[in-house]
Amino acid sequence: MHVPDGFLDATTSVATAVVAAGAIAASLRGSRRELDDRSAPLAGLVATFIFAAQMVNFPVAAGTSGHLLGGALAAVLVGPWTATLCLTVVLGVQALLFADGGLTALGTNITLMGVVGVWVGYAVVRLSLSVMPRRLSSVPVAAGLGGLLSVVAAALTFTGLFAVGGTVPVQVDTLLTGMVSVHTLIGLGEAVLTALVVGTVVGVRPDLVHVARSLRSPERLPTRPGVHS
C-alpha cells in the first residue's frame, strides 16, 4: 500500500503533504492529553509493532504492495492523536532508511494510513463499542471491525487520489475493483490480527488499551491492619 515516488502527480503529492502536515500539527496538540510518563514508551512499542508488520510486504495486482496498515490497532491502543504520530514515525523511518514508500510520497502515505486509516478505524471502534455491551470482551471485536473498515477506507481514498492525480494511465474502474476486492481480503487479515493482539492485551493489561480505559471504574481500596513504625 506504500505509494512509491512518481506515482501521483506533483499537485496531488503537495496537497496530501499539506493535509499530512496539518494532521501532524493537530496530533501533536491533541496527543498531549493522551501521552503521559507511562504511555510514551507504549507509543514507541506500537510504532515498532506496526513497523515490523508493515515490513512483511507482498505485491498486489494493479500497482503498489499490500501489508498490514495498523491504523486501527494503533488508535485502539494509544488513542487516535498519538496513533497518527506513531504512523508518521513508522512511515518516515521506512521512507528514510528503507526506501519503502517514496520520500516525495510521504505526505500521501501519512494521509492514507496515518490519518484516514487511524480515524476511520477509531470512529468504527467507538461506534461499535457504543452499541455493544459495556464489557472488556467487546473491545477486540470492535477493534477487528475497525481494522477491516480502516483498510477499505484507505484503499478507497487512494483510488480517489489516483483518479485525480495518477501519472500512469490505468483505468480508474479497473483500479477501483482491484483495490477494493484485494483490500477487503487484506482487511480481513488485518481484522483478525488486530482483534487477536488487542484481545490478548486487554486480557492481561487492560490499562494499556486506550479505548478500554473508560470501561474500568476506579474504586476505593480496602485496607488491612499492620504495625506502625
Binding site: I24, L28, S31, L35, A40, P41, A43, G44, L45, A47, T48, F49, F51, A52, L85, C86, T88, V89, V90, G92, V93
Partner: peptide
C-alpha cells in the same frame, strides 16, 4: 523535527532489539 516524534522514534529504535 518535533521533539515528540523524535521521542517516539527513539523508543522505536530501542524496542526493535527488545522485541
Amino acid at each position: 523535527v518535533p521533539a515528540r516524534l523524535v521521542e517516539i522514534m527513539g523508543f522505536m529504535v530501542r524496542y526493535v532489539d527488545v522485541v
